[in-house]
Design a protein around this nucleic acid. Structure first.
Lengths: 239, 239
DNA sequence: ATAATAGTGTCTCTTAGACAATATTTC
DNA sequence: GAAATATTGTCTAAGAGACACTATTAT
């Protein structure tokens, strides 16, 4: 045995932001075959000398122009069905990126057109390759991580109010949260929020205090997503 | 641009079991370079027509002889540092497998010797490649998942007692749990445990009721791992 | 009897969620 | 003034953890 089976390795990006009261994902329109003209998640081949995360950051910069420091990036999972790309055998290492709603117009070097699309507007079959599944996994990861990590702040500008943070939660989870309970919990969770001292800022009523994200890497106790328990009584007998 | 950069893709396995009051991982002794004679996680190259999970299951069978149905298998994450394998550029898709303590002697087809080793006995540098990191990530995933998923049952035989299940939690978490509170919570969590009706089985005192795993895929509410909150008052100073 | 494990009940303290009340702004 | 958002406080119900107590086996 001299040679190893040869694969191509790509990174695909699920880039999420909160925009116009909707959770949006960055999609590009493919210029080349396969799936030319179809929408897809941004991504590309990993270069020979490049780490997986480096490749993801490079693609992120190329396709979105998003500055490095403002975006949260983590590996999601890998997809390697033998027929997922008709060109050759490809294993894709998907990454999840969370960005604030920047005024950045998407300058695509690689892609014909990049656009923010509400995730709810995308149905099965709307994205090329197996990107429907990748997107679904990425959104679910983001929803889950808001519970026990301070990641919701990645959707916010450097300084933000509790109300803005709550709106992020409501939009990502698709559920209304009580503003008063949320305020108490968010500010009480150690390391989650750091007061800036400033308070002006308006989106309607009384000025709110401005916070920046604190040093915590986990939320203890977690914020709980509504509607995840069963209506009291029937898990046993059913099926 | 005609060709894509060429990579080799492997699957590596973090196979965990609970054995002799310790959380153990399956390691093999490498017969070939690189790292010949060193211990490593089992794994191997993905075949050209093979899905990632198929490859993981194949390696699991080859290296451990573990029957397919008895083992929980899930993808962990991928590792792709450019220099992680001196032979060629390799991306490894690590998988996590949880197995009950089978009386199976490890029949290694591929590996010189396979052995169960307590994870606590392995320090940095004891495993080849970047397998220290892979193992650490796998153990942490397992510990975390016991909280909110019924995965602890994957460490148990098909029928087990609440006490056996509790011992799994205690060993994996490395913390003592109150038997009475654990019993109440485990049996009250909907879909977690299914009574078999049988009750004999002895490991000392009064016979215990036998259960099998229920249909639940998540534990609501979760079982909470002790010692994860700060001692009331100081998050700032601590590390 | 003692030792060991299994299982139930009870108590207290904390937390989640509902929601009243107040504060500070714009219109 | 009304309307909107921010922030604090209070109440209640549910869950976590401590732990007394009973049950059933082996020795």
């Amino acid at each position: 045995m001299s040679a190893f089976p040869s694969f191509a390795v790509t990174v695909d990006l699920v880039v999420l932001t909160v925009r116009d009261d909707a959770l949006c994902v960055l999609v590009v329109e493919r210029g080349e075959a396969p799936y030319a003209g179809r929408r897809a998640l941004p991504g590309g081949f990993v270069h020979p000398g490049e780490d997986l995360e480096q490749a993801a950051r490079r693609e992120l910069a190329e396709e979105t122009g998003l500055a490095d420091g403002t975006v949260h990036l983590e590996q999601l999972r890998s997809y390697g069905a033998p027929d997922r790309d008709p060109r050759t055998r490809v294993v894709s290492v998907a990454h999840l990126a969370l960005a604030p709603d920047l005024p950045t117009p998407q300058a695509g070097t690689d892609a014909a057109a990049a656009a923010w699309v509400p995730v709810d507007s995308l149905g099965p079959g709307d994205l090329a390759f197996d990107h429907d599944e990748v997107l679904r996994d990425g959104v679910e990861r983001a929803r889950a991580k808001l519970e026990y990590s301070p990641l919701a702040t990645a959707f916010c500008p450097p300084e933000f109010t509790v109300g803005e943070l709550r709106r992020v939660y409501e939009i990502v989870w698709g559920a209304a949260l009580d503003p008063r309970n949320f305020h108490r919990k968010a500010t009480a969770t150690p390391g989650f929020l750091e007061a800036t001292g400033e308070r002006t800022n308006r989106q309607g009523g009384r000025p709110a205090e401005l916070f920046r994200r604190g040093p915590a890497t986990a939320l203890l106790p977690p914020l709980s997503r509504p509607g995840r328990s069963e209506p009291a009584g029937g898990t046993s007998a059913s099926t």
